[in-house]
Computed example of a mutant assay.
Amino acid sequence: MRQPAGRAERRGGGSRKPREERWAELFAVATEVFYEKGYEGASLQHIADRLGLLKGSLYYYIHSKEDLLFEVMSEVHRQGLANIVELASRPGDPLQRLRNVVIGHVDHMCSNLTGTTVFLHEMAALPEERQAEILGGEHAYRSVFLDLVQKGKAEGLVRADIDPKLASLSILGSVNWVYRWFRPGGEFTPKQIGEHFADLIVHSLAADGVLPAAKPAKPKRGKKTTAPES
């Protein structure tokens, strides 16, 4: 985890927990509180109470609630981006790599549901300049999907009528929505969801003759039959 810009220098020592250990604990609790109460409903007092600290003690680590949200969002984005960049760099043609990225992205979101929800729900709570700082330039996250679609089109693997920018927005928008209805132990596993979404996306983009004629396989249902929440 990077050194947060909004954190104050820790004074003193004694028998207190090491600063980085306490920061990691603060980070985890803040993420949970933002998830449970939303940014507007959460307060530094809520976070301090759950940590068993006085509210004033938080200022050893953070300057404001906004700074704390910024650090949570930045770390969620950093981890997610690192995940898809690594997946996109693996061997294979652009469509194969796009499939891997979609599957891995869904799995990462579902495995980090609390942080994902905070990130996708609370981005608008930050000023635009801080949002841009997190997302990076032309949205580094979306650029991974855009690059793969563009390369696939250049190689003749993606249909000529596909607009890469619109396609990347559509892919990321539909895949990101999974967090709204996925529940651990529900009807489908993250892998099943990721594979099904990936097959649908790749088949919708692929040029004629690039892929086998078979339609995307229907995922097998698990034992539980809980319907997705709307």
Rank of each mutant, 00 (worst) to 15 (best):
H77W: 04
R50D: 12
D208N: 13
L54P: 01
E187F: 10
A214F: 15
G6N: 13
L58W: 02
A42D: 08
A206Q: 06
P164K: 09
T31R: 09
F34A: 07
K153R: 13
Q3Y: 11
E155L: 09
E86T: 00
K220G: 15
V149A: 03
G6S: 09
G137V: 08
W181S: 07
F119K: 00
L166F: 11
P91C: 03
E229R: 13
T114W: 00
P212E: 04
V118N: 03
P127H: 13
Y59Q: 08
E129F: 12
A28H: 10
E86R: 13
L69I: 05
F197C: 12
V210W: 08
H46I: 00
L205W: 06
G136M: 11
E229M: 14
L169P: 04
S64I: 01
S170G: 12
R11D: 10
E122C: 09
F182K: 11
S143D: 15
T226L: 06
S111A: 13
W177S: 14
V158I: 10
A167C: 10
R50M: 12
D107Y: 02
P184D: 01
S15Y: 07
G186E: 08
H46G: 05
G137F: 11
E71V: 01
E75R: 06
P18L: 14
K215V: 10
V210K: 07
G185A: 00
E71Y: 07
A48S: 10
E86P: 03
G137P: 06
K223W: 14
T226Y: 12
Q150V: 15
R130Y: 10
G136P: 12
K215T: 12
G14M: 11
F34Q: 03
W181Q: 02
P127C: 11
G104D: 03
R221N: 05
I84L: 07
D163K: 12
S64V: 09
Y141Q: 07
I62Y: 00
A132F: 01
I84K: 09
L146Q: 12
F188A: 10
E155G: 08
K218R: 15
V33D: 06
E36I: 06
F145R: 05
S174I: 14
E86H: 07
E75D: 06
N176D: 14
T31E: 08
Y179I: 10
I171N: 01
E155C: 05
Y59E: 12
E75M: 08
L44H: 01
V29W: 00
R11H: 15
E25N: 05
S74E: 06
P94V: 03
E187D: 04
G13L: 12
L169Q: 10
L68W: 05
P4Q: 02
K65I: 04
E86S: 13
Q192E: 14
A124C: 01
A217C: 05
E9A: 15
R19I: 01
A88M: 13
R7V: 04
E25D: 12
L166S: 13
A8G: 08
T114L: 04
Q45H: 01
P94I: 00
V118D: 04
A125V: 11
R19Q: 14
I47S: 10
E133W: 09
